[in-house]
């Protein structure tokens, strides 16, 4: 498969001069890039480059000391995580962050909690609006379960599932929110080749079928170069490259960052 060449013109999210530090440690310094609507944007870089910190800033989990993030035309310097969720930003985690005591179905249903509005009283009676709402959202969730081919583990507590399936359930939970921007933190880490191929297929299908904009962090360069439209490279909290995969492959600063150079 060769790199896809697609063009995008509408910017969904842009990061402007973000700086984030923890005490004396500068995790991100003066980072700017943008994510276009409908593209697959990869963030790569060696370990400790600040990739996850970048995602955490985008979805409001960290608050950068400097800079601002413009999402859908609204400029913010700070956002709380659930506000980000309400704005249509969903994510998965590098270390799986599922609700281990709950079944696959319940985990994915939880992804729709922002769309479920009936109050405690109707919930307690479980008739009328509460029952209708539960069925409606179940139908939506079943579509995701079909899409991700996890029908057989619907009722299994996720704590009992193998790693690869847990990653898939976590993607399902993020998809259940029907996000406009999906942040994936190392969706293929620790997977074998078949699992990686499945996951790539899901990521591409989500992008094609639902038009979801995807921003992913990944260490497998083959995957990154194949599926992403544009790539931003971080190293030691600084941006060292930004462009389409072919440019990144030939960028000397990127090659140096990965291979190491003698200074």
């Amino acid at each position: 498969m060769t790199a896809r060449t697609r063009s995008f013109n509408e910017v969904l999210l842009s990061v402007e001069n973000i700086s984030l530090s923890f005490g004396g440690v500068k995790a991100l310094s003066d980072i700017s890039f943008d994510i276009a609507k409908g593209e697959i944007r990869a963030i790569i870089g060696p370990n400790g480059a600040g990739k996850s910190s970048m995602l955490n800033c985008i979805n409001g989990f960290y608050h950068p000391q400097e800079g601002a993030i413009t999402y859908k035309g609204v400029r913010r310097s700070q956002m709380r995580p659930h506000e980000a969720a309400e704005q249509g930003i969903a994510r998965t985690f590098q270390n799986i962050a599922l609700f281990r005591g709950m079944s696959t179905l319940d985990n994915i249903m939880t992804g729709r909690n922002l769309r479920m509005k009936t109050g405690l009283f109707w919930q307690a009676l479980h008739v009328g609006p509460a029952a209708r709402e539960e069925i409606e959202h179940r139908q939506a969730v079943e579509k995701i379960i079909d899409f991700l081919e996890i029908q057989h583990i619907r009722k299994v507590p996720v704590g009992q599932l193998p790693y690869g399936l847990q990653k898939r359930v976590e993607l399902g939970r993020a998809l259940a929110a029907q996000p406009e921007l999906l942040l994936l933190d190392e969706p293929m880490a620790g997977m074998n080749i078949e699992e990686k191929q499945d996951m790539c297929r899901f990521v591409l299908d989500v992008n094609d079928e639902f038009g979801t904009t995807i921003c992913l962090i990944e260490h497998d360069m083959g995957v990154v170069m194949d599926i992403s439209d544009r790539v931003v490279v971080l190293d030691y909290g600084k941006k060292i490259g930004d462009g389409v995969p072919d440019e990144i492959k030939n960028n000397q600063a990127v090659i140096d960052a990965y291979l190491g150079v003698s200074h």
């Binding site: 599922l98 609700f99 729709r112 009936t118």
Partner: peptide, 25 residues
């Protein structure tokens, strides 16, 4: 009825992993 609905799922989400719960809203 409450614990099998969305309010119960929110409670269990907070129990199992509060950070992830917050991030999905």
């Amino acid at each position: 009825n409450i614990v099998r609905g969305h309010i119960g799922r929110q409670w269990m989400a907070i129990r199992d992993m509060d950070i992830a719960a917050e991030i999905i809203g």
